[in-house]
């Protein structure tokens, strides 16, 4: 099949960007979307032109490095897959495909389709961990944990930190990302001691990074490649409210 890709090209944050159209011929439907871009880049390099820069690493949908809005949708047209697991069989011969970077104030553009998602790392640094040091852990089976809670924590922990939820949200909110980590750790007995400070610190960090408020539209869940559900956001709001109230009561006592 033959497709035309309209790609956002921008040398750096300072320069002006714009769409450039390229034709890619002889694409097999079994080719992945990024492999199609690889083919395009090989053509460009051969012409001594700079290839289209995009992030990608594992190419099996787990590292969270690939991004892109494909025809306006984060990670493209298919449900619950990343861009690297989007295949050309999802498009038709002759299609014009528009490819843009993830757009959000908190994800500044680096080059072409590459954006800076380090805001996510800083949110995790604010509290997305259990502060146990190596060597101090008790025997693993000391604390049993119901299969239900363990499975639920795993559902939340499946987040790959790709940022599609932010890109799809009209407020560029990071609520789904933050809620997934808060739920993963707060659901576990091991995470309980730091439950309150964790949710307060992570929500504060999210706001500081410039992510917007929840749009309550559910668009994050719709594009999440790992099927993280918005009920985790409700859970986070519950944990946040509880923690904030406790903090007020505590401060009043002091």
């Amino acid at each position: 099949m033959k497709v035309t890709v309209r790609v956002w090209r921008q040398k750096n944050p300072q320069s002006l960007g714009g769409f450039v159209e390229y034709e890619v011929k002889d694409v097999s439907p079994a080719t992945s979307f990024l492999e199609m871009l690889d083919v395009l880049n090989e053509q460009l390099i051969k012409q001594s032109k700079e290839p289209v820069h995009f992030d990608s690493d594992c190419r099996e949908g787990i590292c969270g490095m690939c991004s892109c809005m494909i025809n306006g949708e984060a990670h493209g047209p298919e449900n619950k897959v990343t861009t690297c697991q989007t295949y050309m069989r999802s498009f038709k011969d002759g299609d014009v495909i528009t490819v843009e970077p993830f757009r959000a104030k908190a994800f500044p553009l680096v080059k072409d389709l590459v954006v800076d998602r380090s805001a996510f790392d800083r949110i995790i640094q604010a509290g997305g961990f259990i502060s146990v040091t190596a060597g101090s852990a008790p025997e693993a089976n000391t604390v049993p944990l119901s299969k239900y809670h363990s499975d639920l924590a795993m559902d939340a922990a499946a987040c790959i930190g790709c940022g599609a939820c932010v890109a799809a949200c009209k407020n560029a909110s990071a609520n789904l990302f933050v809620a997934a980590k808060v739920a993963h750790l707060n659901l576990l007995p091991q995470g309980a001691p730091e439950k309150d400070p964790r949710v307060l610190a992570m929500v504060e960090a999210m706001t500081k990074e410039g992510f917007g408020a929840c749009s309550v539209s559910g668009s994050c869940e719709a594009v999440c490649p790992k099927g993280i559900v918005t009920s985790f956001i409700s859970r986070m709001n519950h944990d946040f409210l509880t923690a904030a109230l406790k903090l007020r009561v505590h401060s009043a006592r002091v």
Partner: peptide, 11 residues
């Protein structure tokens, strides 16, 4: 160590 860190191993 992993369990203490919150790694959700199958149970």
């Amino acid at each position: 160590q992993a369990v203490a860190q919150g790694v959700p191993f199958a149970r």
